[in-house]
Structures are given as structure tokens and as C-alpha cells.
């Protein structure tokens, strides 16, 4: 390419940053659950989808579009409770000695859970695509005109991530979680019910995915497999950033958005979703534990 269109370049960068940050919400959920329980939840995309559908039902049948933010909160609460139930039924037993090979068990169970939720959604939602109405009127972020929904999702993500950060740093529960992430044994000896902590952590993790789903529902439309792209980005972000690292998620999210945008502007926009993976491979080759290594305690 001979000439660079600076407006276009700035628009791409902004749109990459916006999307990258929104996907960080997904990644944050994945990494938080991993941090506490050392498992990867493969059904994250399905919780994203459930969050979206819940939001649709809540605001089109009960609250109305003007109360979309309440809808987002309620969908988060709904998915949080669902996550607690799922954790109690399926994940908890693996810490109570009845399961060998935890990683394998967790992977199998959460993949099946994803298959289960997707197909239930196909049966339940029928063949149609749903979309709640947009949350806000169109606006612009610097040079980039964006839809109100994307703007709201962007701001919403910043708010949620800040709240999450404050929760971790300032509250008793948050500190308990940090303790559990650092040393499960230690916190148990300190008299904290780790199983209870696990259950809540799982709920919070999937609720973050649900928030992303609910915020983006009017933007990307709802169908039973709508969570797959968000999940892919989420996983890429945590590998780039380093599993279990919270600052890593933010940086990797922004970086991923940027890389994809730059690839799109200088190369081919249609391959945008592959650039992220190429970047991931490069990171793996150079620094196998991700950019922000989280020191792991063995046993």
C-alpha cells in the first residue's frame, strides 16, 4: 500500500481498542475462574449467549429498552446463580476427592455443558435471530462514528472492570479470592470455606461473560452460537496476557485489538481474526507463559 489514510488508520485503531477491551470482559471471567480453581471453563461462550438471551427477554418483555442497564444487571445475576448451580453440581465434586485428573474432568464437563446449552438454545429459540433494540443513539469516539450500543458496551466494560478491580482490592471477599488464588491450602488453614469461595468465583466469572453478552446483544445479534467469536478472543487474550494475570488481560485485550486493526488496515481486513492467532503463536514462541507471567505455586 502506497498511501496511508490517516483517518482510516485512526478509526481502525479506535475500533480495535473498543472491541479488544469489550472482549477483555470475557477473558477476565476465564482468567478469574482459572485463578481460583485452576480449571478452564470451556462453556464461557454459552454463558455469554445465555446472558444475551436473558437480556433480550428482560428488556423486551418486562423492563423496556430504557432500563437496559437494569437488564444487564439482572442477566448478570441470573447467570451468576446459574453458574453457582453448575459449579455446585459439576465442578465442586472434583475438589472433594471423587475425581482423579481434574483438568481432564473439567475440560470434558465444561465442553459438554457448552454443547448442552447451545442445543437447548437451538430448540428453545427456534430458527430466528433475535436482537434487543439499541441502548443509546449513535455517537462518535474521536474520529470513529460508533453505534450507541457499542459506546455503551465500551463504557460499561470500563465500569465493570473497575468495579471488579475495586472488589478484589478493597473488600474482604476480594482479598479472600486473592488469597485463594495465591495459596488454596493457606487460606483453608486460615478458616475460610474454600468451596464456598469457589462457587462464588465461578458465578462471578460467568456473570462477566453474561455482561459481555448482554451488552453486545443488540450489536452482534443473538443466535445459539453467537458466543463463539467472543470466546475465541477471550482465550487468545488470556494466552497472550498470561493465565491468571489480571493486568495481563487488560494489556493483552488492547494489544489484540490493535494487532487485528493494523493487520486489517495494512493487509486484508477479511483475515482480521487470524492475525490475533498469529500474534498468539509469536508470543508462545518467545515467552511461553504469556506477557505477564503469573508465578505458579507447585502443589
Amino acid at each position: 500500500m502506497v498511501t496511508i489514510d490517516w483517518t482510516l488508520l485512526s478509526q481502525y485503531i479506535i475500533s480495535g481498542v473498543v472491541i479488544g477491551l469489550i472482549y477483555s470482559l470475557m477473558a477476565m471471567g476465564i482468567t478469574f475462574i482459572y485463578g481460583i480453581m485452576r480449571i478452564i471453563n470451556w462453556s464461557m461462550g454459552e454463558f455469554y449467549m445465555i446472558g444475551g438471551y436473558l437480556q433480550y427477554i428482560i428488556i423486551t418483555h418486562f423492563l423496556g429498552v430504557e432500563n437496559w442497564y437494569l437488564g444487564v444487571l439482572l442477566s448478570m445475576v441470573g447467570v451468576f446463580l446459574l453458574g453457582m448451580v453448575v459449579q455446585g453440581l459439576l465442578i465442586k465434586p472434583m475438589f472433594q476427592g471423587s475425581v482423579e485428573r481434574r483438568t481432564e474432568y473439567a475440560t470434558i464437563v465444561t465442553i459438554s455443558l457448552g454443547v448442552l446449552f447451545t442445543n437447548v438454545a437451538v430448540i428453545g429459540a427456534g430458527p430466528f435471530i433475535y436482537s434487543p433494540p439499541g441502548y443509546y443513539h449513535g455517537t462518535r469516539i474521536l474520529t470513529l462514528p460508533v453505534s450507541g450500543t457499542r459506546f455503551v458496551a465500551f463504557i460499561g466494560t470500563i465500569v465493570l472492570l473497575s468495579l471488579f478491580y475495586l472488589f478484589l482490592k478493597k473488600t474482604w471477599w476480594g482479598r479472600a479470592f486473592q488469597g485463594a488464588a495465591q495459596n488454596r491450602m493457606g487460606i483453608q488453614t486460615a478458616g475460610i470455606d474454600v468451596f464456598r469461595l469457589d462457587q462464588i468465583a465461578f458465578g462471578i466469572g460467568v456473570a462477566l461473560a453474561a455482561a459481555a453478552g448482554a451488552l453486545l446483544a443488540p450489536e452482534f445479534y443473538l443466535h445459539p452460537r453467537c458466543g463463539s467469536i467472543a470466546t475465541m478472543k477471550g482465550f487468545e487474550i488470556i494466552v497472550i496476557g498470561g493465565l491468571g494475570s489480571i493486568p495481563g488481560v487488560l494489556c493483552a485485550g488492547l494489544l489484540l485489538g490493535l494487532i487485528e486493526s493494523l493487520g486489517a488496515v495494512f493487509l486484508n481486513p477479511s483475515f482480521r481474526d487470524v492475525y490475533g492467532f498469529l500474534f498468539l503463536l509469536a508470543i508462545l514462541a518467545i515467552k511461553p507463559t504469556g506477557l505477564f507471567e503469573e508465578r505458579e505455586r507447585v502443589a
Binding site: L8, Q11, Y12, S15, I19, L144, F220, C226, S228, I229, A230, S261, A264, V265, P269, S270, R272, D273
Partner: peptide, 14 residues
């Protein structure tokens, strides 16, 4: 574009 890709903004901006 690929049918499964959610965000088509870059193509449209171009």
C-alpha cells in the same frame, strides 16, 4: 467476508 465473523466494521470503514 467470512459468514461467522461478528464485527464487519473494518471492511465497512474501508
Amino acid at each position: 467476508f467470512d459468514r461467522k465473523v461478528a464485527d464487519l466494521t473494518p471492511q465497512l470503514l474501508k
